[in-house]
Each structure stands twice: as structure tokens, then as C-alpha cells.
């Protein structure tokens, strides 16, 4: 039994494969202070993320993955280049239709689960009955219906992250940005949340942009995986996985899963070693993927 809000979302999928998010020559430089030099964190990068795609960005730590997410969310302006969302350039601030879930627990500890999920709708002045209906749907969708009256302190880390996801989904975002949302969770919970994420992506029709350092997660979840270089972050490879839309975590037993993960690791290892200034001895070098 599917909550009504989500049933119409699949229609968005039929839409064109135009770039819903486009980056052109985007760079991010953090100005230095106290005598420290400027930090060139990102780019220049060009990127098109099509509507409804599950897009994942992997890269060595400190490569500017999170900076990329901030820039495409409009949380932080690009130093140069343009970011467009649905064809319109970002003009300071986060555009309507973008939702984000972060690695750190962002559930509001002073509100119960229900009020957490209703928060955004209340701030937008949505009517009381409409809020009740949409919150009920979101709670049911995220398996939180039995915990509506609980406070975050009474929930596990995984459940709190579900609260944050429900709080974002209830606003019906067209793009869902996820900055290592499962980074703080244990392995088993991560796999289950991965399945959950695929289900959310399928049933809401939202475009998902996931930032992660876990290659298996990237290989399992994504339509496309972009591999970033060490700082300043650029894309060194974009891999199309070719998974069917109806996939779940069981594809980890598919032979291609291993091949994709190996390919990603190959690219990333090379890049990480280069960034550390360590090269493989020539005879040891892994040959092309």
C-alpha cells in the first residue's frame, strides 16, 4: 500500500534527459587568511546531471566532494563558472526543490519525530490538515509511524537519519542531495539504508546526488558514478553502471558489481597515490580497466 503523495512522482521520470543540474567551468577557491595561501578546492568542473538519475560522487578524502555538494545546492557560491538548476542559474541561496541530508545528525532533539517531519511544512505555512496528511504519508513511507511521538534521543542513529530523510522528503524535493548520509552508521544499517534509498529514489522520482567515500555503496546504488581527483577536485572518470531501475542490494552478488567496484578502486587508488606523491613501481602497476 503506497501513500498517495508518492504515487504521482514516477511520472517525473518520463521527462527528458536534459541537464537538471548543470555545472560549467565551476571552481571554488577559499581565500587564505593569516598568511595562509588560498585553497583551490574545486574545479574547473563541467557536469550535467539528468533528471531522475541516481548520481554518485566518490573521491579521496579532502578532494572537494562536500564543496561540490555545497556549490550545487547553492549553500556556497562558486568562485567562477555557472551552476544552473532546471535551466536557471543559482542566484544566491538554495533554490526551491532541493533537499539535503547530511552525515551529521540533524534531527531536532527538542521536537518529537512527528514535529521534526512537519517542521518544514509549518515554516512554509501549509494548512494544518494538509500537514497532517503529508506527515502521515512520510512517516509511513520511512517506517516511522510507530515512533511519531518519540524524541530523537530515544532513537538509534539509523532511525534519526530516517527522520532527517522524512523531514526532507515531505517537502517533495526534485533533487535530493546526500552528503555521506550513512557515514556514521554501522555496515549492516548502511546496506539496509542503501535499499531504502533505492526505494525512495524509485518511488519519488527525485534526482539523487550522493556523496560517499564507500566504493561498494557507489557501485551498488548508482546509475552513474563520478570519480573525483585529489584537490583541486575534478572529474577523472564518469562510469555508467547500467543497472536496472528495480535493483536492490542483492546486486552485490552480480559479477559486474565486482568489476565496477574494481574499476572505481583502480581509478581512485591511482589518484590517491598520486596525491600522496607515491607512485607504483612500473612493474607493479595495475594495467588498464
Amino acid at each position: 500500500m503506497r501513500p498517495s503523495v508518492w504515487s504521482n512522482a514516477g511520472r517525473a521520470m518520463a521527462a527528458s534527459l536534459d541537464g537538471q543540474i548543470s555545472l560549467r567551468g565551476v571552481t571554488k577557491v577559499f581565500p587564505g587568511h593569516d598568511g595562509h595561501p588560498d585553497v583551490h578546492a574545486l574545479g574547473p568542473v563541467d557536469l550535467d546531471i539528468a533528471r531522475g538519475v541516481f548520481f554518485t560522487v566518490v573521491g579521496p578524502s579532502g578532494c572537494g566532494k562536500s564543496t561540490l555538494l555545497d556549490v550545487l545546492a547553492g549553500l556556497s557560491p562558486a568562485t567562477s563558472g555557472t551552476v544552473t538548476f532546471e535551466g536557471r542559474p543559482l542566484a544566491g541561496g538554495v533554490p526551491d526543490g532541493i533537499g539535503a541530508v547530511f552525515q551529521q545528525d540533524a534531527s531536532f532533539f527538542w521536537l518529537n519525530v512527528r514535529d521534526n517531519v512537519a517542521f518544514g511544512l509549518r515554516r512554509r505555512g501549509v494548512g494544518g490538515r494538509e500537514i497532517d496528511r503529508r506527515v502521515d504519508d512520510a512517516l509511513a513511507f520511512m517506517g516511522l509511524a510507530d515512533f511519531a511521538k518519540a524524541f530523537p534521543a530515544q532513537l538509534s542513529g539509523g532511525m534519526r537519519q530516517r527522520v532527517c530523510i522524512a523531514r526532507t522528503l515531505v517537502l517533495e524535493p526534485k533533487v535530493l542531495l546526500l552528503d555521506e548520509p550513512f557515514g556514521a552508521l554501522d555496515q549492516q544499517t548502511r546496506l539496509l539504508m542503501g535499499d531504502e534509498l533505492l526505494r525512495i529514489w524509485r518511488e519519488t522520482g527525485a534526482t539523487v546526488v550522493l556523496i560517499t567515500h564507500a566504493l561498494d555503496e557507489a557501485a551498488m546504488l548508482s546509475d552513474q558514478v563520478a570519480v573525483m581527483s585529489a584537490r583541486p577536485g575534478r572529474f577523472i572518470d564518469i562510469v555508467a553502471t547500467g543497472w536496472p531501475r528495480s535493483r536492490d542490494s542483492r546486486i552485490v552478488s552480480d559479477a559486474r558489481f565486482g568489476a565496477i567496484t574494481a574499476h572505481l578502486w583502480d581509478k581512485l587508488r591511482e589518484e590517491s597515490l598520486r596525491a600522496m606523491g607515491v607512485g607504483d613501481p612500473p612493474d607493479n602497476r595495475v594495467t588498464g580497466a
Binding site: L75, A100, A106
Partner: peptide
């Protein structure tokens, strides 16, 4: 106050 709360507020366009 956790920086993630400020980020959340900005994503919610408060």
C-alpha cells in the same frame, strides 16, 4: 550549535 543545523535551515530556505 551544531553547524549542520544552520545548513539544514539554509536548505529549508529559512
Amino acid at each position: 550549535v551544531a553547524p549542520v543545523y544552520r545548513r539544514t535551515a539554509r536548505v529549508m530556505r529559512l
